[in-house]
Design a protein around this nucleic acid. Structure first.
Lengths: 389, 389
DNA sequence: GGGGATTCGTCCGTCAACCGAACTAAATGG
DNA sequence: CCATTTAGTTCGGTTGACGGACGAATCCCC
């Protein structure tokens, strides 16, 4: 076997193009693949033949429809084969962990959410995560050797170089490299860790409310406030991987001291616990985030006011960012992202504080994946990193 | 790397790789090109042969040094040929225009700066620009048919879709598509227009103070305040092309009304005319930007205070942006970018208001191209758009 | 029911692009 | 003066993609 560098690379590039097109568009015929990639039908046929032989692609038994309802021989559809085995996605919040197990076509097989005091002790949280993964594997009937990759997010910036949580944000995780810790506990080769808002952005961008939109800002409003920024269709992580710290924009010079050390950070005003605390005295029942969302939908004046204020504060910070980035869409995620009043507040501030042209080019929409955006992003990341092509 | 497609496309991709390597590294031998691209010496030889035949590359007469001072046949160096003809770069400011003529290897042949009240009447300014270009062509001995492309920047956001200046920013340019207007006046096919800060960023990134740095923010502080944002090595223009409006971040809720319609924009505090106005009463001599920079270098207390305040205001706005983008370097440009006090002010605010990790990963440096950054970026853009490969 | 028309997938011959080996060219050094 | 080293070229061979031709499978229309 002679290594013919460039030609061989060309062939693998073409193979990759086919796989990525199949991934984006779903099952399709060889002729459609040829049209989609610009390759000839001949070439597509031989490449698909190789991909079938290597197990990356399967020829489906169902025949497709003839071309555009007209006549002609119906095509044989080919589809990406789901590789054997499973991956795990883990969403670590401040007060919960959510673990999902999926096959390698992103179909979720099992999922579990649990309240855990993550902030206090990172090691203990990771212990619990490892237990849940093990349980889910067992109840789904998979052996540990069938777990190919793990994607995880943590609610804190992650320094790319040290693979650690940034200073000050999550004290219980100091000097705890999450990927390595999890790899040690579960003996899985591929463990990828990223920031929660980043993975939420990835999920909403690839299959949620911002599908096909090149420049988006995903804002996660939950226990904290964070942003995942997709520019030119690619997640922007920054020089050291800690981009997206929208929650620590200063909005009040004399405001509360934030866990990051500054004063009056956006996060001190609009984080979910803070809002509940603010509302609770006026209500007889114990308030939860779900209950607040329900009251908001019912039109409760107090809730609307508080969530509207929060939205306006977020929108104020977003306006500055949008002036600089001119994104096409803002996706509001996190437990409070679907609140109508909050969304209205964001829109109000953007209209008021952003440049008119910038605001006009901008859509503000709630996320479509809800609480599960982060874990779905983690699964997607795990699958992409476990790909063998 | 290798784009999918036919064999022919593979060849052109390889040709492009050779040209881009030659562009980046300067003259080199075929053997070095083979090592640099991973192609075989055979392939490089034939490709270079084609490029020589087509006039894109020349074989220099000087022989290179034998490899690493050792023995061996000395290589024949090949270099990018400078295509015939010239290009023009035009920097349109609020109160001046700067026009440069260069050959197509970016060597400036002639340059002229002139005070023009650009804001008042866009058409008149473009008339004058066309005159200057014509004059420079004549005095340099080139005919108009030898002018291959024009790059121009204007001090306002440019909507990509309408190719017009954004609403409100530059009233005298409303409904005046700059590229088309200039094309009409000078009968040049290739006319590219972009925002001033964008082209400054391009220049400082490709050949100035941020060479080789992937994520930078170029801040231009002159008659206005604007930013050019390079992320992942590529200029970010945003969904409609109007990214970078850092000057219209609101820094004072009750501040002066800005030309953009909002109140208390950064630009109302730190634009150069505003600072001169602020300083003038305390000085007997008439102040210019150059004089203020000189006073700053001499340690004049008043100037240092005012420029320091301006820098802190800019840094305050940059801190929020850096929290979200985590860039590696900030380049301060524009007429006041080289001021030491201003730079110190920016650093002070960044340290205070940005996340500690973000600030630690960040360098703040003055631009290396000074007033000429924009026009050099315009030339570079014109050259790249006039390339025939 | 049968004969185009149309589209799909494959086979085959051809051409394009790259590579390795061998060869010549031009220097250095003992 | 000859061995050594590196550069560039020539030549034969392999790989990859393509276009045209062909059978297959369906629809449409008579």
């Amino acid at each position: 076997m002679v290594s013919h560098g460039s030609l061989e690379r060309l062939r693998t590039a073409n193979r990759r193009a086919l796989v990525s097109l199949l991934g984006a568009e779903g099952p399709m015929s060889r002729a459609d693949l040829a049209r989609g990639t610009g390759l000839s039908r001949t070439t597509v046929s031989t490449l698909i033949g190789e991909l079938i032989a290597s197990g990356h692609v399967t020829e489906t038994t169902v025949r497709g429809r003839p071309h555009k309802g007209g006549s002609g021989r119906p095509p044989l559809l080919v589809a990406l084969a789901t590789p054997p085995g499973v991956v795990a996605g883990i969403d670590v919040g401040h007060r919960h962990v959510r673990v999902a197990l999926s096959d390698r076509s992103a179909a979720v097989l099992a999922e579990q959410v649990e309240s855990v005091d993550v902030d206090a002790d990172g090691g203990a949280a990771l212990d619990r995560v490892a237990e849940i993964v093990t349980t889910l594997l067992a109840t789904s009937g998979f052996g540990r050797e069938e777990l190919h990759a793990i994607g995880m997010c943590v609610p804190a910036p992650l320094d790319r170089r040290s693979a650690r949580v940034g200073t000050g944000i999550l004290p219980g995780w100091r000097d705890l490299p999450p990927a390595e810790e999890l790899r040690r506990r579960l003996d899985v080769r591929v463990v990828v860790v990223d920031n929660d808002a980043n993975l939420g952005a990835l999920a909403e961008h690839s299959r949620g409310a911002a599908k096909g939109v090149a420049d988006i800002i995903y804002v996660k409003i939950a226990s904290g406030v964070g942003a995942g920024i997709v520019l030119g269709g690619r997640l922007h992580r920054g020089a050291t991987g800690i981009a997206g710290e929208l929650g620590h924009v200063q909005v009040d010079e004399d405001g509360q001291v934030c866990r990051c050390g500054n004063r009056g950070c956006l996060e001190t005003l609009v984080a979910a616990p803070r809002l509940l605390e603010l509302l609770q005295p006026a209500y007889d029942e114990p308030l939860t985030e779900e209950r607040v969302l329900a009251l908001d939908a019912e039109g409760d004046a107090g809730v609307r006011r508080v969530l509207g204020d929060a939205g306006r504060a977020v929108g104020r910070a977003l306006a500055d960012l949008c002036n600089s980035l001119n994104p096409e869409r803002i996706v509001l995620g996190g437990s409070l992202g679907t609140s109508g009043s909050l969304g209205e507040g964001v829109r109000t501030s953007l209209t008021r504080f952003a440049q008119p042209d910038t605001a006009a080019a901008l859509q503000v929409v709630p996320g479509r994946l809800g609480d599960r955006a982060e874990v779905l992003g983690a699964l997607a990341l795990a699958i992409s990193r476990s790909a063998t092509l």
